[in-house]
Design a binder for these strands. Sequence first.
DNA 1: AATGAATGAGTCTTCATTCAT
DNA 2: CATGAATGAAGACTCATTCAT
Lengths: 210, 210, 210, 210
Amino acid sequence: MPTFPDSIRKQLVEARRNQILDAAAAVFAEKGFHRATTKEIAQTAGVSEGTIYNYFDNKADLLIGLMTRLAELETLDEELKEALQGNVRDFFIAMFHHRMDRFQQGQEMLQAILPEVLVTLRLRERFYRQYVLRIATLLEQYLEARIKLRHIRPVNVPLTVRALQSMFVGLLILRILGDEPLQSEWDELPEVMATLIFDGLRPCPEEVAE
Amino acid sequence: MPTFPDSIRKQLVEARRNQILDAAAAVFAEKGFHRATTKEIAQTAGVSEGTIYNYFDNKADLLIGLMTRLAELETLDEELKEALQGNVRDFFIAMFHHRMDRFQQGQEMLQAILPEVLVTLRLRERFYRQYVLRIATLLEQYLEARIKLRHIRPVNVPLTVRALQSMFVGLLILRILGDEPLQSEWDELPEVMATLIFDGLRPCPEEVAE
Amino acid sequence: MPTFPDSIRKQLVEARRNQILDAAAAVFAEKGFHRATTKEIAQTAGVSEGTIYNYFDNKADLLIGLMTRLAELETLDEELKEALQGNVRDFFIAMFHHRMDRFQQGQEMLQAILPEVLVTLRLRERFYRQYVLRIATLLEQYLEARIKLRHIRPVNVPLTVRALQSMFVGLLILRILGDEPLQSEWDELPEVMATLIFDGLRPCPEEVAE
Amino acid sequence: MPTFPDSIRKQLVEARRNQILDAAAAVFAEKGFHRATTKEIAQTAGVSEGTIYNYFDNKADLLIGLMTRLAELETLDEELKEALQGNVRDFFIAMFHHRMDRFQQGQEMLQAILPEVLVTLRLRERFYRQYVLRIATLLEQYLEARIKLRHIRPVNVPLTVRALQSMFVGLLILRILGDEPLQSEWDELPEVMATLIFDGLRPCPEEVAE
DNA sequence: AATGAATGAGTCTTCATTCAT
DNA sequence: CATGAATGAAGACTCATTCAT
């Protein structure tokens, strides 16, 4: 048996894992975790059922694998840091754009993960720490800094951050639910949200004055 | 000989249905639809498994029953209409309060329903029409009216409404995920959200001026 | 409580039993014993499920009831005796006519009973004794007598009788199977069978001579 | 790596299917379709319950499988054709022998199938077409040809054929019912039946003349 | 005697997981 | 490593039977 040097083997293993995870994401997203069968995942991935178990301990482990891979997609911090210096409104728009893009990419994975996350304590905790809390903390720091600089009005920072995050999570849900306006006008959302969040619905005094 | 007159029988049937739905909500919320067994639901309800099937066609029908009951909880329209006349900011606060209260009541049911809804096309469509779209339409009408009156700045109405609704949905999710600040400061959310949405994060010109 | 004299009560009881048995026969014949539910029998009979159990011990007891009632339909012996004296060929035709008529009447009951009889040892034994063996014995006696009188050629009596009975049973089966010629030409069967059995398929020497 | 070449795999599959069908035939014949449990079939076959479902869609599919296999046993046509040329009476004896032998072989399968066939529309139709009608057609053709040749007296062909077939079907039923003479004298049946059918019960004129 | 809601034992069927090849 | 047949535990659902009214 020709053996490969470790580095190549690792790449092969990684490729096979991803091939399986892609299939799992697709099937989970379509049918949900429980209605998805390992047989169908195997077929979708083009491998045998047994092979799945050479790369993952069990079906639930596929979800963990998806979560991990989704986390690797997450690079909010760096991008946030880049925009961190600039104008606040621009930062929001940048962040919103960034999030919306990620959603497009990760929607399938999220759709695969989220329903089961909502239902399983261990996943819930993991998901909360890995995604929600990490980003919440970053946003809190940002907001507090900006408030000190008076770029932002003083607000209840933790709750405001939650409200912001909720909006993102909720948008994902509405998308999954098939909302049409979200589908067709997705790209305009960042601007709309920035207006909503930063400028508020209250008519501008100036505008009123006009 | 029919034991009871029809009206009493109907009440008995309704009571039994609710007894079972309560149990189903509890078990679904804790374990999720699939991990919930009819046996456990029966035990929780204090009836036999067979009795469940005297009142519901099948397990999935329990979910439908929960959705229907949740819809009966929903009286947004009327309350919206009441608050419709007043000051816009007050309207938002009232609406937010109203929503937050409903969440408290319906959280268990929603937690039972939502994960499965995300995963099942038929439920998804039903849920979307029954909850999301109905409320979206109301909010759109409200916003448009207020924009005409210049009580609100002109915005992309459908997307803004989606963003608002998303916030609610997302808050529910974060709650399910066990977010601590949301838990402990839940009651302050309406005020925070009203500020966020209506006033925006931008510092007040006057305040800046000070 | 007004009580009825015993004789009237007995008639009422008998009427109710028959009402239920009629329903059972209909449902068993349509769906078979196992797929027939007591609920449907009750509905068909226009009584409640509980009432069935006031008149029968259990579901299987309904089958026994049907067998008993079918046996009461059977009066072969007397009619046989009447025709016993006459010409042999006429006897066969009379008997065949008689059997065909009985089938018309009892088909539903037989169709209800037979499949389950084939499958249940106790019923099998009962059915065999009650119907097959009783008639077999009569026919054997008849045949033997006629053979002695040289009205019939000497044959293996028991087997010949079985062959005859088999034909009847088989005709019933083919009818249940929906055979079209049997349906449309049912009334001509006695004559055809008499020819087959009594005259045989062999061309008449006289006819050949012609 | 596929373990086996296709031809071998097919044989393995076929062997396993037969192993399961054998068990199903045994259990169905003993208890009837409904009282037979998949668990018992599995035990009898020496496999697990799950394995059954790797080879058959569901319990009813086992019946279909049995019917198909029984049909493969059926080669009446060829054998009929062989005997077709000879003397008519010999043909009947040959055919009867042939049928009796088949019954011996297929009794268990037939006993397993028939009761359920009588009760299920789809099976009824299938069974009727596959067995009854096919053979009826053959026999009709044979009879008609022989009638033209004056080897057989002119008779109502369809009904006569039905009567003949009925006899076979009925004999099977009586056997299932445990009739003793049929059991012990089974081998003499062909001769008896040939006499009955071909010669008729009527005493031979010559014999009478004697 | 009649009712029909409640019962729960019993069964088919699914599917994650294992393991011999 | 890959395969996929075999496994059997688990669970939704049915329905004969009981019994309080």
